[in-house]
């Protein structure tokens, strides 16, 4: 009976969709219950829960992933939707366009280069480098970049999770060391380095920090999407 049940359930995408929704909701609830720890974001709790459930039920990842396509297809329109906050922040961008425009290319390039350099020094292969290059870019854009570079999307997503989670304590540490209180700077740094995960955290700090985080996230995404694949081809890493 039980052995027949699982194939029946996984035959419909609703099983994967339901599991994902449940893990996300339970993860968010636990996160609130733990009074929003900055070192353990809701998405990390949810991802660990989901992985544990899949492992316990013995559902192969490929089967789950196939069903979850019903959710992930929405990443396309969700990326387009980021055009809305971008438009809403245009006045703020104009106000600060000079420092932001000077900082963004350097900071966004370094976000990729530091990690690539360290991984290369430690002997990581080209497939690993291609998978972690977009680690600071918001997921829907990063997936497109990684596919173009020929990296592994699964490893990219793991790198996104690790990078986003680490960015939060690192930004508060760096802000303390550098004596920075400006919420605009802190927000921008959270979005630029920590993509969606950092942006969610910035909205916890204040709406201004959140607005600058979405700005940093969008601009890093656009800049990296435009330049990283070209740079990759120039360096000759692409096959």
């Amino acid at each position: 009976m039980l052995t027949n049940l699982l194939p029946t359930l996984t035959a419909t995408p609703l099983f994967a969709v339901g599991l994902t929704l449940a893990a996300y909701l339970v993860g968010s609830a636990l996160f609130m219950r733990l009074s929003k720890p900055s070192w353990l974001p809701a998405i990390l709790i949810a991802a660990l829960l989901l992985a544990a459930i899949l492992a316990l039920l013995g559902v192969p990842y490929a089967t789950y992933q196939q069903g979850a396509t019903w959710l992930t297809v929405l990443l396309g329109p969700a990326t387009v939707a980021l055009g809305m906050p971008l438009y809403q922040q245009l006045p703020r961008i104009r106000e600060l366009w000079r420092p932001l425009a000077a900082c963004l290319p350097i900071a966004a390039s370094l976000a990729a280069c530091y990690a690539l350099g360290i991984a290369w020094l430690l002997g990581a292969g080209p497939d690993i480098l291609a998978s972690i290059a977009a680690k600071s870019v918001t997921a829907p854009i990063a997936i497109g970049i990684t596919e173009q570079l020929g990296g592994s999307v699964a490893l990219l997503m793991g790198s996104l999770l690790v990078t986003g989670v680490l960015t939060i304590p690192f930004v508060s540490l760096a802000a303390r060391v550098l004596r920075i209180n400006d919420e605009r700077i802190i927000g921008f740094a959270l979005g630029l380095n920590g993509h969606a995960i950092g942006t969610v955290r910035a909205f916890d700090i204040s709406p201004t920090a959140g607005a600058f985080a979405s700005l940093g996230m969008s601009l890093t995404g656009i800049f990296t999407a435009l330049l990283l694949p070209l740079a990759w081809r120039l360096v000759g890493l692409a096959g």
Partner: peptide
């Protein structure tokens, strides 16, 4: 957004 990237993250 966070939920939509979860299926990939779990990979």
């Amino acid at each position: 957004l966070a939920m939509l990237i979860m299926p990939g993250v779990v990979g």
